[in-house]
Amino acid sequence: MNSLPDQPDPWAFLQSHTSARIARGRTGHSLPTRALLDFQLDHARARDAVYSELERDQLVRQLKTVQEPVLQLHSRAADRQQYLQRPDLGRKLDEQSRVKLSVSGRFDLCLVLSDGLSATAINRHALPVVTRLVEEVRKQGWSLAPLCVVEQGRVAVGDEIAYALKAETVVVLIGERPGLTSPDSLGAYLTFRPEPGLTDESRNCISNIRPEGLPYEAAVQKLLYLLTEMKTRKLSGVQLKDEFDDNLLTH
């Protein structure tokens, strides 16, 4: 029989106010076994997400039913270990990929999908977001550049791609750094008139896209709102963010 303490603290009712790991109980000064293993499981899932791989063939096949063509690209980071230590390489395309970008034309929007720090996020959530976003983009009458899938990519790789494809705006959907309870958060980074060398202050970000966080449809609506604002006001980044936040606060 389990007679040793493996129960929460008397103030466990406070848990309804926060997702923080409060009132876990203790044995001596240590965590009870169950609480310890709950943490280890969450960390294991986050670690697995960092080392997960894009289900590329399946993803490309599904994306082609939404929009063609789909370009398969790779950054200069050869593998995950190099990717983690050399963010500069993840921001640039390798030579073979650059050749694939010689597509003629001008576009309103370029959509880029990249594994980032959680391919799991792309594997789970990219298709429903892209499907709905492309529907809405077509309704707006915006022209769409070829869909791009980048392996071992960082956010800024989207700037190089969209610049080469002559797209006015870029949306990069990318796996975010896994949190302990969110190994599959998808992030979306938006830039107006992207070009190589831009930094974070030129971008707007929508974070934590997943059913338990920001649901798909809400994310798509927010993306459309930001894209419309960018196109109307011809800017993105800090300036747009400040006014967006102020609007939220006054409402």
């Binding site: 923080a20 790991r21 203790r26 965590l31 943490f39 969450d42 750094r177 949190g179 309870t181």
Partner: peptide
């Protein structure tokens, strides 16, 4: 930090339990 898990900044640090461990 409760359970060493910062639910806002998304990183892991040390917990209240960890501090008790060192004190003891």
């Amino acid at each position: 930090i409760p359970g060493a898990d910062d639910v806002m900044l998304h990183y892991q640090s040390t917990s209240f339990h960890d501090a008790l461990y060192v004190r003891n």
